[in-house]
Design a protein around this nucleic acid. Sequence first.
DNA 1: GTAGGGTTAG
Length: 635
Amino acid sequence: MVCPLPSISLCMLPSLNFEQRHSFRSSLKPTSETLQRELFHKFNSPFELQQVHTLVIKTGTPLSALPLSRVASICALTPSFPYARRIFQLVDQPEISLWNSCLRDFAESDSPFDAILLFHQLRSHNVCPDSFTCSFVLKACLQLLDLFHGRIIHAFVEKLGLQFNLVLQNVILHLYSSCGQISDAILLFNKMPQRDTVTWNTMITQLGKRGDADSAYEMFLQMPERNVRSWTAMVSGFVQCGKPKEAVDLFTKMEEVGLKPNEVTVVAVLAACADLGALNVGRRIHKYSDESGFQRNIKISNTLIDMYIKCGCLEAARDVLGGMKERTVISWSTMIQGLAIHGKADEALELFSEMTQTGIKPNAVTFIGLLNACSHMGLINEGYAFFASMTRDYGIIPGIEHYGCMVDLLSRAGLLQQAHEFIKQMPIMPNAAIWGALLGGCKVHKNIEMAELAMRHLHELDSLNDGYYVVLANIYSEAKQWDNAARLRKLMRNRGLKKTLGLSSVSIKEVAHEFVAGDDTHPQFQEILKMWNQLQVHMRLKGYIPNTSVVLLDIDEKEKEKVLSRHSEKLALVFGLIRTPPGETIRIFKNLRICEDCHASFKLISEIVDREIVVRDRNRFHCFKDGCCSCRDYW
DNA sequence: GTAGGGTTAG
């Protein structure tokens, strides 16, 4: 027999200490409050539902005291479902709202498919869904990119007469567009009776993700009202579409309009600066970000690290990493990759062990950075060791990129036969990048036979890429096989391929000055030429001999030297020397790889003019100082 | 209840 004491709330007894309270409590009949609290902890399996229910009845506790949403999530996908329903029907709360909160939790959980299962459960037990039900299930479909169920729910929305619910229409639009059904999305967009900013922003975001910057921008201009998210979506879209300049320009316009960029905008525009190598804009945004109180945002810090690295400022990148209170695997991987392209393999490897010591597990991208570091410095054994370790110690299956790094590592080091064997033993089909890496090694190590073999594969895999033909033509002309070189040029012509023009830019007071190879139409060309001739006198005294073998054309030596002296990176450097004060570091950005003659020249010039010259080429950084390059001539 | 962001071989 239960002790017939009146129900007293424990909080009415503040003077009792913990032990007293505890002994008192055990002699009391549970109140609704204590019951509710305890139920929350006890509720673990559906078996206990009946026991709890019995307790509730025995103590006369109102049913609403039960943690109903917890009951719902525990019973949702079990045979106790009907039992839970019977309880819900006794509570003064719409049944569907309980299932909805459960659906929301499932949709946001690690297994969103549970939301879809629950939806089927609800349907088969004739529970009537409402608009919230649909929105949560659609959210689950979106997480899973489950177009099949998405279409079912869409049909259901129409059946329930919810086709005028703007929120639902927006989710459906989002679902179609992110499942790659852009034409369905556009169809829906066009027939929507009303649209809001979310509708437009969704379209802009998804078009940007698909690489269609033009359509996205058209929408951006067309939309009646733009908020910060609209601008952010467009800035981000430009970055994703490989238009970082447009991204920075739009960002500037956004500031002019008086809108305050938020954390997401900052990430997007910093990524644009990284792509552009726009250090000054990047620095300004870093300052803005700090002033806005974004210091603790990990994604911003990670993007800042990447931005500084890609702008050639390793020190600044280190400072950002050093100042981070919390780091993710991305923070470390970004820095490791950064050190790799700056030729600091030892530091990259050190950072890796520091990372694992702090308990952070590397991911597939971390290993790309590590292998890259080995590759840029010729660390063959270390590279093999990392390649083996990634699977053995971390269960990461190497992807095509990892194989690419290994082929690059071996080829660069001149182990061409070994590289070829490695390719033949790959468990996945080698792609153009793999053969391209081998071809690159053949150029450095002047192996015509292997180069031709690689080219046969490249011919099949990526016949429209001019770069490979140029490399092979280069190999031929260096070996003075003019017939073969000419044959290749003819092949390129027949295929409608043109050699990508060399483009270099040098930034002076925030303005990027661009130079094209061979361009003598620049207004300051005469000045540049004069300066180059002066430099050459000093260079020749230091033993400089123009390396005319890099010139593809079969022309006389004097002509070759002329072509050589007008390489875009040389024009940019000389212009930079003229227009900047002595001692200032010169930063050059080139779209292709730096040529061997320019590399040799820059080393000498850095010594002659006593300046640091930082060149970011298509692959990595070269930092010239006191007659040496940070790549130690291994590239 | 609906829209967004960070590292990735050559």
